[in-house]
Design a protein around this nucleic acid. Sequence first.
DNA 1: TATTGTTATACTCTATAACTATA
DNA 2: TATAGTTATAGAGTATAACAATA
Lengths: 148, 148
Amino acid sequence: MAEPSQYAELARQLGAVGAVKRDMARVLPASCPTGTLAVLTSIDRYGDMRIGRLSELLAVDMSVTSRHVTHCVERGWIERICDPTDKRSRILRLTPAGREVLAELRLRMTSLLADRLRDWDEDDLSRLIGLMNRLLESFGAAVPARPG
Amino acid sequence: MAEPSQYAELARQLGAVGAVKRDMARVLPASCPTGTLAVLTSIDRYGDMRIGRLSELLAVDMSVTSRHVTHCVERGWIERICDPTDKRSRILRLTPAGREVLAELRLRMTSLLADRLRDWDEDDLSRLIGLMNRLLESFGAAVPARPG
DNA sequence: TATTGTTATACTCTATAACTATA
DNA sequence: TATAGTTATAGAGTATAACAATA
């Protein structure tokens, strides 16, 4: 059983995470805000999928995902392929251009994180990632392992 | 030295933290959104202070803090006291009404967290909090120890 | 001149609800 | 009827820049 004082501390930290996210967002170009990057990253990682599934992965409403995807489609980074099994939905797929921008954005992000986390060793970071994942699970916001 | 694949994982997790924060925000009344709660919590925790210092604690721009504080002042939760040492600024202080709402909101938040984190033990949560704090420090978003 | 705050403006992210098309 | 997705609308949070008052 955890303690109330720990809850307060955790709540405060989660709020401060916003500053971290904004720091990371600063390396992104205006054409690709965080929501867009999240979409590209998820499709690359988990493979082609429908909007509904992508929404679950991102833990946001389908309407939100739909807008982000539209943003990507308009820039030629994602294509919507007709789903032969269900004409109501279409499968989202990364285009070569999409993979290109993603690679570029990853370089920038990795570079930023390598700087900010320069005095972290692999084990500590693993521990943090493990605990974070458990936290997300506790809130039902966890993301399934690799393929899914 | 940490690894790039860990960076990607961490970046993804930080994005998912949004869902956790939204889950917590849902227990708050419309009159007290997250930004407002953060203001009340910080002043209660760190004591009376100026807008500038509060902005640092919250890791957001002073213009943002100013609006949140105004929101609180309009509801009688915070009072702005003239700073005798500098007429440009005023000291922010929690009113009795402010302490009351804060106590109520804490009850709700603690109740939510006790439920979500019901299968966490104190040690694991301490480890997470410790690592999170280190992460925030690495991004220059850490919050100083108690008083400050 | 520099600093503390405030306000106006704009942008991103999000959810809810209404709507279309298909199951 | 129920479900997949889109779009319109609204609300929260944030930053930048221009401005006022004081140091």
